[in-house]
Design a protein around this nucleic acid. Structure first.
Lengths: 336, 336
DNA sequence: CTGTTAGCGCCTTCAC
DNA sequence: GTGAAGGCGCTAACAG
C-alpha cells in the first residue's frame, strides 16, 4: 500500500512542499505559476498522490465534514431529508462538505458513541435526525464543541436550532377527518414516546377528539418502535379492544402498514370494518391495495431550513438561528 | 467552542502528556498506576476533554474507520446488508470500527469523489455496495491504498474479494416458474445494465426461457434506475407490446411495484391479466394487495462473508480472500 | 511567484 | 510506573 506524501513529491520535482500544497488546493492555486501548477498536478496524478486529509484537518482545525445522526435508515422520510440536506450543503468535491452518516436505531448508547466519534473527528457541524428526549444532555453537551442542528425530531426544553413539522396540527387534522366521516370511537397507535414527534401527534389528536366529542378507546397503545413489525404486533391489541374502534390513527405509515396486515390476517377489511390513517405520505402509502390516508410531511421545507441553518452556523457559530415549524397537509385516500 | 487538549490537561495535573495518552487508551492503560489513571479519567471527563482522532490517525497511520459505498439508501436490501456488516465489524466504542456511509446514486462522479474522500481520510477498508462496471478502474485503483471488498454487486473481470448472490440462478428460477405455470410469452423489466447483478438476472432468465421454449417479447426493456418510479414508467412500454406478455419478471421488487401500479391504472389485474415476479423479497412484497412472487436474497450470508473478508484484510492486507456466491430462493406468492 | 519555518495533537520509542 | 522527545503530513505565516 504505497503512499506518496507531499515531501516526496516535492523532492522528486525539486520544488518546496508548500508549492505543492498551494498548487493542489482549490483556493490558493492561483498563487502558483500556471506551468508549475500543471507540472505538479500531472506529477501528483502520475504518482498516485492522495492528500492526507487527517493531517490537513489537524493543521487547519476543521475537517469539511458534517455528521448526520439518523435513527432509522429504513425510514424513507429520513433518507429524503438526508439527501436534500446533503444537496443543500453541496456535493463533495464541488462544495467542501462530506457527509458522515451514522445510524442510532434509537439506542442512547449508540447515539452517544457516534456523537463522540463525530466530535473527535472534528466534524464542522452535526445534524441530528435521531433526537429523543433522553438525548437532550449529550446533544446540548455536543454544542460546546460544534454546532448542532435538529431536524424532524425536536427536543422540548432545549435551545437548539430546529427544523420540524407541526405534528400537533397533523394529529388534529386526522381527528377532524375521522369526526367528519362520522366515527365515534377511535384509537391511536402511538410511536415511542421518547420522540417528541409522536408525543405531539398524540396530543394534537387527543385534544381534537375531546373537542369534537369523539371517544378514544382505552388503554393507550404505544408501539415499541415505529416500524411495520411493531405495528403488526400492537395491531392485535387494537382488534381486541372493546368497544372496538371504527377508525385508527397510526403515528406513521410503517405502523399503519403493520396494522393493515394484522387486519387482513383477521379477515377484516379497510375502510369498511376499520378506517386507517398514517403519517408521512411515504411512497408505498399510495401503492397499497387500499391506498392509505396519511399526513404529508413538509420534507422539502424542513430540509432546506436545516441545511441553511447548518451553513450559517458553520460560517459563524455565534449566528443566531431560529427554529421553525412547518405545516403538514392531510391526504385523503381510500383507507378512510 | 473551547477545546482542551492533552498538553493542557497534562499541565493542569502535573503529569506528562504521554501518561494521559496511556491512561485514556484502551489497550495501554494498564501501564499507568491505578490511582493516576482514575485521577486522569475524572479530570478528562470534568474538563470535557475530547481526543482529537485526526491527530491520532495521523500519528498511528490508521483511522479505525471503514468506508461504505452504497448506491441507493432507499434500497432495503442494501440497508440490511450495511447493518449486518456493521454489526459484524463491531459497534463503535466496543469495537474499533466506525462506519462512514456514502451514497453514490449510481453516479460515477460521486463514486469517485467518495472513494477519494475515504482514501484521503485513511479508512482501514472500503466496502462497496455500489459497484458498476464503469467503476472498475477507480475501485481497483483504490486497492493500491486500502483493501476494497465488494458486496451484492460484483464486477466482472476484476479480482477483488466479493460476496454476492447467484443472480443467474435467480433469473433462471423465475423463468422455470413461469414455464411451469404455462406461460408462453413473457418479458423482463431489466435493471440498469451497468450493474452485473442485472445482467446476470437477465442472462439466467433468457437462457432458461430459450431452453424451455418460452418466448421473450421484443424489444428488450431496460429501466434507467431500479426504482418504483422507473418501473411505473417502463411499465407502459410493457403494456403496449404485441403480443402482450402474460408474465413479467421485474429485476427487483421496486420495479415490480411500479409495474403493478401501471397495471392498476390501466385496469388490469394481477395475476389474471399479467403475472408478475420481483427480486429481493423485500418487506413490502408480502404486504401488497396481491402479494408478490419474488426471489429471496441471501442477505445474511452475503453480509457475513463481506464482514469477515473485511476483518481479515484489515488484519493483513496480503491475506488471500476468496470470493463467494450464495444461492437465492424462489418465493411463490399470489402474483403468479 | 516560491521557499523557509513552525506547529496542529497525538502516540511511541527510549530512557530512567 | 512515568517522563522526555520526536515526528506523522500538512498548511499558513512570514520572507524574499
Amino acid at each position: 500500500m504505497a503512499r506518496v506524501n507531499m515531501r516526496e513529491l516535492a523532492r522528486s520535482l525539486g520544488v518546496d512542499r508548500s508549492t505543492i500544497s498551494r498548487a493542489l488546493s482549490t483556493d490558493k492555486s492561483h498563487l502558483v505559476g500556471k506551468e508549475t501548477r500543471e507540472i505538479i498536478r500531472k506529477a501528483a496524478e502520475a504518482a498516485g498522490y492522495r492528500p492526507n486529509l487527517t493531517a490537513a484537518t489537524l493543521r487547519r482545525g476543521s475537517s469539511n465534514t458534517i455528521g448526520i445522526l439518523v435513527s432509522d435508515l429504513e425510514n424513507e422520510t429520513f433518507i429524503t431529508v438526508i439527501r436534500r440536506v446533503v444537496a443543500e450543503l453541496g456535493t463533495p468535491g464541488q462544495h467542501p462538505f462530506t457527509p458522515l452518516i451514522g445510524e442510532t436505531r434509537d439506542s442512547h448508547q449508540t447515539s452517544r458513541e457516534l456523537l463522540d466519534q463525530f466530535i473527535s473527528r472534528r466534524v464542522d457541524a452535526i445534524i441530528s435526525l435521531a433526537s429523543s428526549d433522553t438525548d437532550a444532555e449529550i446533544l446540548s453537551d455536543a454544542t460546546r464543541y460544534v454546532p448542532v442542528i435538529l431536524a424532524i425530531r425536536k427536543i422540548n426544553g432545549i435551545k437548539l436550532p430546529t427544523a420540524t413539522c407541526d405534528d400537533e396540527a397533523g394529529g388534529a387534522m386526522v381527528a377532524e377527518h375521522f369526526a367528519e366521516r362520522g366515527h365515534k370511537v377511535v384509537c391511536q397507535i402511538k410511536g415511542p414516546t421518547i420522540s417528541a414527534t409522536f408525543v405531539d401527534r398524540a396530543l394534537g389528536f387527543s385534544k381534537a377528539c375531546a373537542r369534537l366529542g369523539v371517544l378514544e378507546c382505552e388503554p393507550e397503545i404505544v408501539a415499541p418502535n415505529a416500524t411495520t413489525a411493531a405495528g403488526r404486533k400492537v395491531g392485535e391489541q387494537v382488534l381486541s379492544m372493546r368497544p372496538r374502534p371504527t377508525a385508527v390513527f397510526a403515528h406513521n405509515d410503517a405502523l399503519a402498514l403493520g396494522m393493515l396486515e394484522t387486519m387482513r390476517s383477521a379477515g377484516l377489511s379497510c375502510p369498511e370494518d376499520i378506517a386507517l390513517a398514517g403519517y408521512n405520505n411515504t411512497r408505498i402509502s399510495q401503492l397499497l391495495s387500499t391506498p392509505l390516508t396519511t399526513v404529508d410531511y413538509p420534507v422539502e421545507e424542513v430540509s432546506i431550513h436545516a441545511g441553511q441553518a447548518t451553513k450559517s452556523l458553520i460560517a459563524d457559530p455565534t449566528n443566531e438561528w431560529s427554529s421553525r415549524t412547518f405545516e403538514p397537509r392531510l391526504i385523503v385516500r381510500g383507507s378512510t
